[in-house]
């Protein structure tokens, strides 16, 4: 039993970068939350739970035995990206992590750093750019020739997974920002609905396209061998459905959270 667990948790290919980034994120939250607690503004248990569940899920799909299956089965790869880009990123963003992570700095300010990052943040958090990147990255990494190269090269593979996770967190941070848009000057709730709708349809189309295409769209799995003998057609259909339906469900979930925020601020009245 212990040995099974150990095997399951051992990373297929050890990535120091992944370990470092996950430790930094977890450490940042713990430190920031402690600093905030001293000021009596500790994040709620739910936020902490959401953050760590999201982080753990992401870690689990890229740095355990799961990663092996994600490399050698198309539909497992789709589950991996579903967690990185949707579920895990969603939970991390839902925890509203930026104020907590910013609290790590304590009273210190870094005006130069802030000024250097401000334009980048403005661009990446822009609703149009965030949506285009969110959908664009899904299409980019699923472009058959790009997908082939990414699956073959360790470097590109890591770039693919991290770009999906970081992009997912940014997109969901824009959608799930809990502040009142009128005061924080963030994207309005209407805009966020539009972002979700705009991101939803291309994903449905892509998922349906993969599902109904002739098998062999992603032949890298045939060339590199599957983790177990599953027919290429079944693998592709499963992968297509996983690209199609769960992301659509996550969109609805996102819309529900936005709706809740909206009603909250409406009730408080102007």
């Amino acid at each position: 039993m212990w040995q099974t667990l150990q095997t399951a948790l051992t990373p297929y290919i050890l990535s120091p970068l992944t370990v470092l980034l996950c430790l930094l994120a977890a450490g940042g939250w713990v430190l920031g939350a402690r600093r905030l607690a001293r000021q009596g503004r500790a994040p709620s248990v739910w936020r902490t739970l959401s953050f760590f569940t999201g982080l753990l899920l992401c870690y689990a799909v890229i740095h355990t035995q799961f990663d092996y299956y994600a490399r050698y089965m198309f539909f497992m790869h789709r589950i991996q990206h579903l967690v990185l880009h949707h579920l895990g990123a969603f939970l991390i963003a839902l925890a509203n992590p930026l104020p907590v992570l910013a609290a790590v700095a304590g009273g210190r300010r870094f005006p130069l750093l802030a000024r250097a990052f401000a334009p980048l943040r403005r661009v990446l958090f822009d609703p149009v750019v965030a949506t285009l990147l969110f959908v664009g990255l899904i299409f980019f990494w699923l472009w058959p020739s790009v997908h082939f190269d990414a699956m073959l090269s360790l470097r590109l593979y890591e770039l693919m997974n991290w770009s999906m996770l970081i992009d997912g967190v940014i997109f969901w941070l824009v959608i799930l920002d809990p502040r009142d848009p009128r005061q924080a000057r963030t994207s309005g709730f209407g805009v966020r609905f539009l972002m979700l709708v705009a991101a939803l349809f291309p994903q449905i189309l892509l998922g349906a396209y993969i599902t109904f295409s002739e098998p062999g769209l992603y032949d890298v799995y045939a060339i590199c061998g599957r983790a177990w003998p599953l027919s290429p057609a079944t693998d592709q259909v499963l992968g297509g459905v996983l690209t199609w339906i769960p992301p659509a469900m996550m969109t609805i979930l996102g819309a529900l959270v936005v709706l809740r925020y909206y009603l909250n601020y409406e009730q408080r009245g102007d």
Partner: peptide, 8 residues
Amino acid sequence: YRTAYGYG
């Protein structure tokens, strides 16, 4: 060589 094998 980035390849997998498995048994039915």
